[in-house]
Design a binder for these strands. Structure first.
Lengths: 184, 184
DNA sequence: GTCTATACACAGATAGAC
DNA sequence: GTCTATCTGTGTATAGAC
C-alpha cells in the first residue's frame, strides 16, 4: 500500500490558507510544507520557488471565485436580487472562512509599492469581481454611474474586512454586504 | 563645526515613510538607516530593535493624527460641515502623501493573525478616529445609529485606499471622503 | 515522491575603534 | 554619535540517499 499521494489542488488550497493568514513575505516554505504535511525538501519537489507557490495559489483562488461566486451574476434564471443575495452569502463565507480576509487585498497592501510580482493576478481578481457586479447592477444604474457604484461597493466590502479583522467581529462584513443589496 | 545631529522626530518621520511603503516585515533595518542617512550600526544606537522603531513610529503617527486631524472635530468655532471638510482635506493629504496609504490598515492586515505586537497602537488609532467622527456626526444621528455610521465611514475610506493603491488613482479616496461629507 | 543534510545568502543585532 | 567589521540565526533553495 503506497503512501497517500497529495494532489496539487490540495497543496494549493492549504497554501492559500497559510498565505491569507500570514501574508506572503512572512510565510516560510516550512510553514507551507508543515500545513500540507510534507517536509520542506519534498515541497520543493512540487514547486520551483515560493513565488511559484504564491502565483499558483492566487490563480487557484481566482479560479474558485470565478466559477463559484462571480458566475452567479450570469445565471439567467435568477433575478438581480437573487443573484446578489447568493453572491453575498458565498462572499461572506469565503472572506470569513479560516480567517485571513481577502488574500488579494492583503497582498496588494503588502507588495504594492515594493514589487509588482503579483499585480497581474490581483488586478484580474478585482476586474472579474467588477464585471460580475456590473452585470447585476446594470439594470439599476446608467452606464456612467455603473463603474463608480461597483467600485464603491467593492471598496466598502474590502474596508469592512479590515475593520472585521481589527475587531474580530464578522458583523462588519455582513453589514457591508447588506448595504450592497440595499443599493439594488 | 560638528556634524548635523539628526533628531529622533526626524528619524521616526522617515521611518514611517519606509514602513508605510514596504510594510513592517519586509522593511530592513538597513532600509531605515539608508533613508535617514545613517549606517545600520548607528541606527541601533537610537533604537533597541526593529520592533522598537515600529512601535515608536506608530505612536508618533498617532500623535500627529491626534493633534493635526482628529482635534479638528473638537474645535468649537467650526460647524460640523466645516469640521468634516477640513478633516477630509487633511486625511486626503495624509493618506496620499508619499504613497503607502494607511500604515495602520497595512499593519493590521500584515500582522493580525500572526502576532498582536502592535495591536494596542492600531486599535488606539481607530478608536481616536471613531471618537472624532462621532463628535462630528452626533447631532445628525441618534446614539444607536452613531457607532455603525462612523464605522461604515471608516471602512469606506480604508477600502477606497486599497482600491486607490490598486489602480494608482487618488480619485477613489477623494470620492469616499466626499461620500462621508454627504452623510452629514 | 519523500526524506535528511547542507549550501548559501542575508537580515537582526553587537563590538569596538574613532 | 558615527563608523566598519563581525557574530548569529534563519529562510530559500539544492543535493543526494532511500
Amino acid at each position: 500500500m503506497p503512501l497517500q499521494k497529495i494532489t496539487p489542488e490540495e497543496i494549493l488550497y492549504k497554501s492559500i490558507k497559510v498565505f491569507r493568514r500570514r501574508g506572503y513575505y512572512r510565510t516560510k516554505m516550512s510553514d507551507l510544507a508543515k500545513e500540507v504535511g510534507l517536509t520542506k525538501g519534498t515541497f520543493y519537489h512540487h514547486f520551483e520557488s515560493k513565488e511559484d507557490v504564491m502565483r499558483k495559489a492566487l490563480m487557484a483562488s481566482i479560479q474558485w471565485f470565478e466559477t463559484s461566486l462571480f458566475s452567479i451574476a450570469f445565471e439567467p434564471q435568477l433575478s438581480s436580487k437573487e443573484k446578489l443575495e447568493k453572491m453575498s452569502e458565498k462572499a461572506f463565507k469565503a472572506f470569513t472562512d479560516n480567517e485571513g480576509g481577502c488574500i488579494f487585498a492583503n497582498t496588494i497592501l503588502e507588495t504594492a509599492h515594493v514589487e509588482d510580482t503579483f499585480i497581474k493576478e490581483i488586478l484580474r481578481f478585482f476586474e472579474l469581481w467588477k464585471q460580475a457586479l456590473m452585470e447585476v447592477f446594470k439594470e439599476k444604474y446608467s452606464n456612467d454611474q455603473l463603474t463608480d457604484v461597483v467600485q464603491q461597493i467593492i471598496g466598502d466590502i474590502e474596508g469592512s474586512i479590515i475593520i472585521m479583522q481589527l475587531h474580530k467581529d464578522n458583523l462588519y462584513l455582513k453589514r457591508a454586504l447588506n448595504r450592497s443589496i440595499e443599493m439594488l
